[in-house]
């Protein structure tokens, strides 16, 4: 509808865009390619090999880190989405016409806006001051802090597309508030819940900074492992681990975007209205 054909975009823009996309993908792409390099030292290509992956997968510490990462990602994304549903409902269905509500909204989204170092430092100080031993629990808490606003944003975007009169219609037809939530809100929100969960899971899986500040001994996650491997010297194993991590997050994000894209189709009541 009224979308201009591609040739109206200046060619220089198109070529620049191709360059930009290459710029965004080439480094990670090269990293993945060279994770299959047989050479232990240099970047000179010495043939294809699964060697580094073999070594990686037979490393017990690596499995432990993977377990930690999964635990943190699962717990933090589930908690974030659960709390996010309630918050998104209130924020979206109740326009922020009161000044106080706007502050609530700002507070809820601020963790996404501030540099992660700040979040890490603040949480570290907090846990030390309240004398909570650093470990997996503290990492999970830290991850919920940034996953919660993320979940709220995704859920709100979906809620905005759901006709608010559907809730009223359900109430009018005799549903209690809980029944309305159970039979109307949750089913309509389901794709967004899934997509927010996947996104939070990925972000948690990938997080380094907050984890770095809040993890105690024995709470090593995969990104922490990558970091210490980089610091102790570059071995091709890092490439393999990096490649695995990137592939994982791309898969999860791809899945999440797919779900979101499907849900982006307008709901019938909206079609009728426009």
């Amino acid at each position: 509808m009224g979308r201009p054909v591609a040739h109206r975009t200046p060619w220089s823009f198109i070529w620049l865009s191709v360059g930009m996309v290459l710029f965004l993908y080439a480094p990670v792409g090269l990293l993945i390619v060279f994770s299959f390099n047989a050479s232990p030292m240099s970047v000179a290509w010495q043939g294809f090999s699964w060697h580094w992956y073999d070594r990686l997968l037979s490393d017990r510490a690596m499995w432990e880190a993977a377990q930690n990462s999964l635990a943190v990602a699962t717990v933090s994304s589930v908690l974030a989405v659960a709390m996010g549903i309630g918050a998104a409902l209130v924020l979206e269905r109740r326009p922020a016409h009161a000044r106080g509500m706007e502050w609530v909204h700002n507070l809820l989204l601020l963790p996404l806006m501030i540099p992660e170092v700040l979040l890490g430092v603040a949480l570290l100080l907090f846990f030390v001051i309240i004398e909570m031993p650093l470990g997996l629990i503290t990492v999970m808490i830290g991850h919920v802090v940034f996953n919660l606003p993320l979940a709220i944003v995704v859920l709100r975007a979906r809620l905005r597309k759901i006709d608010p009169f559907l809730d009223e219609a359900a109430r009018d037809l005799g549903a209690t508030p809980w029944q309305t939530f159970r039979w109307i809100t949750i089913p309509l929100l389901r794709p967004a819940i899934l997509s927010a969960g996947l996104m939070a899971f990925t972000v948690s899986l990938d997080d380094f900074i907050v984890t770095f500040f809040t993890a105690g001994p024995g709470a090593t996650t995969l990104p922490l492992r990558v970091f210490s491997m980089i610091k102790t010297g570059i071995t091709p194993e890092v490439n393999a681990l990096s490649a695995l991590l990137v592939t994982c997050s791309m898969a999860f994000i791809g899945l999440s975007l797919f779900v979101q894209h499907r849900e982006a189709r307008p709901l019938p009541s909206q079609v009728e209205r426009t």
């Binding site: 090269l30 990938d206 990137v246 994000i253």
Partner: peptide
């Protein structure tokens, strides 16, 4: 989607790629 994927993928790994280069 091609812009969103790097937006969400591991920042540490993306930075490490440049060390490698």
């Amino acid at each position: 989607i091609m812009i969103l994927i790097p937006f969400w993928t591991n920042f540490l790994v993306r930075t490490y790629a440049w060390i490698f280069i």
